[in-house]
Design a protein around this nucleic acid. Structure first.
Length: 456
DNA sequence: TCTGGGGTCCTAAAGCAA
DNA sequence: TCTGTTGCTTTAGGACCC
């Protein structure tokens, strides 16, 4: 999907269409998740600190991501993909590989083009959004093709043309070459993909190590036989928080770690999993990051056990100077939530040393006490008199709402007190009205979707 | 206003067992 | 008994991706 999060917001908010839209964390330490193409003109791009984005594009609309909504749209698109082939490998909410041959959906260039074009039309019809398609003989090439196809396009890489096409491109085009590897190669005088080929496999292995070296050399020759793998199992579950201001108080650090451990357990249990290795992550005031881990004798999903492990791990890290991020994760996952006796026993042993403060129950959902949190920028609301709208901004006891819906004209803005009883949070409206040929319910209710997809 | 959150994979060191 | 080799597991860190 093209600029997925931003496109969803533009589709659901008519007044933002054609405008610079930036979606991401709005706090003092937020970063850009997605910038609309209009915002990219100003130099805004994903992973950029929000402050920098605001300096570059002060008049853009700044919105908080609505992952639940994006996920619902993503699922509709993934359904379309699975209709083409059982082999669908999602890379993220907005991207997936599809093995068209395995699905019998396409067998040559012509049939593939047809399938790709029809898919793009279907995505548009079902979601109201544009997606781009890259068609090629391998995952790496399909990915590169889909990048070239964006926005709103379709690109085919024909067999036999791969090497010539890759040659002049930057090494950074290859998947797996990020800033560090890119720098490394540049210092060795290697900037383009053909220079990787010229350098030779031995030189690459010498520069980057065995695995990465062999892998990159193969990619540079357009050799990639990795299969499309449907539904890969999760290998870890983790949660982390970056704090608006560094935490110095050691007691508070401990409390936050407990909260994170509980949240992690909720996610673990929600997925029907348990795990053996507990990981604590600490990012300090100077952005240095360290992890500490502990492997239990067997998998567990017991909140008390995981909390205590996390607390023990915290004992071994120095937090003087302050902490900007804390995280708790679990890996070594086991499929079923089977109570593990060893882990339980370990927990009980620990309990002997002192009473465990809290029952294993999770604290109440963090209620956003602040008015600003109750009305996050971009979220939908309903007003008793003015109908459906979205929060444009809030602060100083006021919330500003624009009243419009995906199908309406750009709407008017009104400001209310944050505690106005006529104003309440609302669910997002479908981006596309379902067309139940015949009956024309004003707002059909079902059928909204939208996303941008990439890949083969 | 410097730098999110959720992951994956790789490497290297250290400890231990055969 | 001592020494060396190999291989597995655990731990820590780093690069990368969306």
């Amino acid at each position: 999907m093209d600029a997925f999060f931003a496109s969803v917001e533009q589709a659901s908010k008519p007044s933002l269409r054609g405008k610079a839209v930036v979606v991401g964390g709005l706090g003092p330490r937020g970063v850009v998740a997605t910038a609309s193409y209009e915002a990219r003109v100003f130099g805004v791009h994903s992973a950029m600190p929000m402050g920098q984005a605001r300096r570059l594009a002060p008049n853009a609309a700044y919105l908080v991501p609505r992952f639940g909504f994006y996920k619902a749209i993503s699922e509709r698109v993934m359904e379309l993909l699975r209709a083409l082939s059982p082999l669908v490998e999602p890379l993220s909410l907005d991207e997936a590989f599809v093995d068209l041959e395995a699905g019998g959906a396409a067998w040559d260039e012509q049939s593939a083009r047809l399938v790709g074009a029809r898919l793009r039309a279907d995505i548009r019809a079902v979601t109201g959004l544009t997606g781009s398609v890259g068609l090629a003989a391998s995952k790496m090439l399909a990915k590169i093709a889909s990048e070239q196809a964006k926005p709103d396009g379709l690109v085919v890489i024909e067999p036999g043309t791969e090497r010539a096409m890759l040659g002049p491109m930057s090494v950074r085009t290859l998947p797996g070459v990020g800033p560090a590897t890119g720098d490394h190669l540049r210092r060795a005088g290697i900037t383009t993909i053909e220079e990787i080929v010229e350098a030779g496999e031995d030189e690459l292995v010498r520069l980057l190590g065995k695995s990465h070296g062999h892998g990159l050399y193969a990619m540079a020759l357009a050799r990639d036989d990795r299969p499309v793998v449907a539904e890969r199992e999760a290998k870890s579950v983790s949660v982390e928080d970056t704090y608006d201001v560094d935490i110095h108080d050691r007691v508070r650090v401990g409390l936050e770690v407990q909260r994170l451990a509980d949240r992690c357990v909720r996610r673990l249990r929600g997925a029907g999993l348990s795990g053996r290795t507990i990981v604590l992550k600490v990012r300090r005031y100077d952005f240095s990051t360290l992890t500490r881990s502990e492997t239990l004798r067997g998998p567990t999903d017991d909140p008390a056990v995981i909390r205590e492990a996390a607390a023990r791990l915290l004992d071994s890290v120095d937090t003087t100077g302050g902490v900007r991020l804390l995280g708790v994760g679990v890996s070594g996952l086991a499929d079923y939530t089977q109570e593990d006796l060893f882990a339980q026993a370990a927990g009980e042993r620990a309990e002997v040393r002192g009473p465990v403060e809290e029952p294993a129950v999770v604290p109440a959902e963090e209620q956003p006490a602040l008015a600003e949190r109750r009305w996050p920028a971009g979220h939908d609301v309903r007003h008793a008199a003015f109908g459906h709208g979205w929060v444009q901004g809030s602060g100083l006891g006021r919330v500003t709402v624009r009243f419009e819906t995906p199908g309406s004209e750009p709407g008017r803005v009104r400001t209310f007190r944050v505690d106005d009883p006529d104003l309440e949070p609302a669910d997002p409206l479908p981006l596309v009205l379902s067309r139940p040929e015949g009956s024309r319910g004003p707002e059909g209710g079902s059928g909204a979707v939208g996303l941008r997809s990439a890949a083969p």
